Simulated scan of single mutants.
Amino acid sequence: MTENPPDADEQGGRKRGRPVQMCPRKRETLVLDCAMELLSERAPDEVTMADIARRAGMSKRTLYTLYRSREELLGAGLARMSRRCSGRCASRNATRRSRTGCGSC
């Protein structure tokens, strides 16, 4: 008689079966984070959907449900990075103006 293998959680590893669904916002954040990491390591032409999917731990099919193309995905990542940089610059300028009392900086 053969014994059933123990579940992975009994072994301290990964559980078997379909992974827990991630909320759409977290999934999109993860995908964009992974895409930007890859862009920091490689030229844009060398970053593929397969690379992004692998880094994010999901399928290319999932990526294509979020974005129609690699260009759209990378564009969304760059737009997010631009918004973050703009926000930081605006925050620094506001802090600088409050310290100096100068409204023209």
Results as ranks from 00 to 15, higher is better:
residue 86 S to E: 08
residue 21 Q to L: 14
residue 8 A to V: 01
residue 6 P to L: 14
residue 31 V to N: 06
residue 60 K to S: 15
residue 57 G to P: 02
residue 51 D to E: 04
residue 47 V to G: 00
residue 93 N to S: 09
residue 62 T to W: 00
residue 2 T to A: 11
residue 43 A to L: 13
residue 77 G to W: 01
residue 91 S to Y: 11
residue 19 P to W: 03
residue 102 C to R: 15
residue 87 G to W: 02
residue 9 D to S: 12
residue 71 E to V: 10
residue 33 D to T: 10
residue 41 E to H: 12
residue 91 S to Q: 09
residue 60 K to C: 09
residue 18 R to D: 09
residue 2 T to H: 12
residue 23 C to Q: 14
residue 57 G to T: 05
residue 18 R to F: 11
residue 67 Y to E: 03
residue 46 E to F: 07
residue 47 V to K: 03
residue 70 R to C: 00
residue 31 V to S: 01
residue 55 R to D: 02
residue 90 A to N: 07
residue 2 T to D: 04
residue 59 S to T: 13
residue 74 L to M: 07
residue 6 P to M: 04
residue 17 G to T: 03
residue 3 E to Q: 07
residue 96 R to E: 15
residue 70 R to F: 02
residue 42 R to T: 10
residue 34 C to E: 05
residue 54 R to M: 10
residue 53 A to R: 01
residue 43 A to N: 09
residue 89 C to M: 03
residue 17 G to E: 05
residue 53 A to P: 02
residue 50 A to R: 10
residue 24 P to M: 04
residue 79 A to P: 01
residue 26 K to M: 13
residue 86 S to Q: 10
residue 53 A to Q: 06
residue 82 S to F: 10
residue 52 I to T: 00
residue 43 A to P: 09
residue 35 A to C: 08
residue 89 C to V: 08
residue 11 Q to N: 08
residue 50 A to H: 03
residue 83 R to S: 08
residue 35 A to I: 01
residue 64 Y to Q: 09
residue 11 Q to G: 06
residue 94 A to T: 09
residue 90 A to P: 03
residue 40 S to Y: 07
residue 86 S to W: 06
residue 24 P to V: 05
residue 44 P to Y: 00
residue 31 V to T: 12
residue 103 G to C: 13
residue 49 M to I: 03
residue 25 R to K: 14
residue 83 R to N: 08
residue 62 T to L: 07
residue 49 M to S: 15
residue 71 E to P: 02
residue 62 T to Q: 08
residue 21 Q to F: 07
residue 5 P to K: 14
residue 24 P to N: 07
residue 86 S to L: 13
residue 13 G to M: 01
residue 82 S to H: 09
residue 8 A to P: 04
residue 90 A to E: 09
residue 91 S to W: 14
residue 8 A to Y: 05
residue 89 C to L: 15
residue 57 G to Y: 05
residue 21 Q to N: 09
residue 72 E to G: 05
residue 91 S to A: 13
residue 21 Q to S: 12
residue 86 S to V: 07
residue 43 A to M: 10
residue 73 L to G: 03
residue 28 E to A: 11
residue 58 M to G: 09
residue 39 L to S: 02
residue 38 L to C: 11
residue 26 K to D: 15
residue 78 L to W: 00
residue 65 T to G: 12
residue 46 E to V: 04
residue 88 R to Q: 14
residue 20 V to Y: 07
residue 17 G to F: 01
residue 22 M to Q: 15
residue 94 A to C: 05
residue 46 E to D: 06
residue 20 V to L: 14
residue 26 K to G: 11
residue 101 G to A: 01
residue 100 T to A: 13
residue 105 C to K: 11
residue 97 R to G: 09
residue 68 R to S: 06
residue 96 R to A: 15
residue 96 R to C: 12
residue 94 A to W: 05
residue 5 P to F: 15
residue 55 R to F: 00
residue 68 R to D: 03
residue 32 L to M: 05
residue 47 V to D: 00
residue 52 I to N: 00
residue 23 C to M: 15
residue 46 E to A: 15
residue 19 P to H: 03
residue 26 K to F: 13
residue 28 E to N: 08
residue 98 S to A: 11
residue 1 M to T: 10
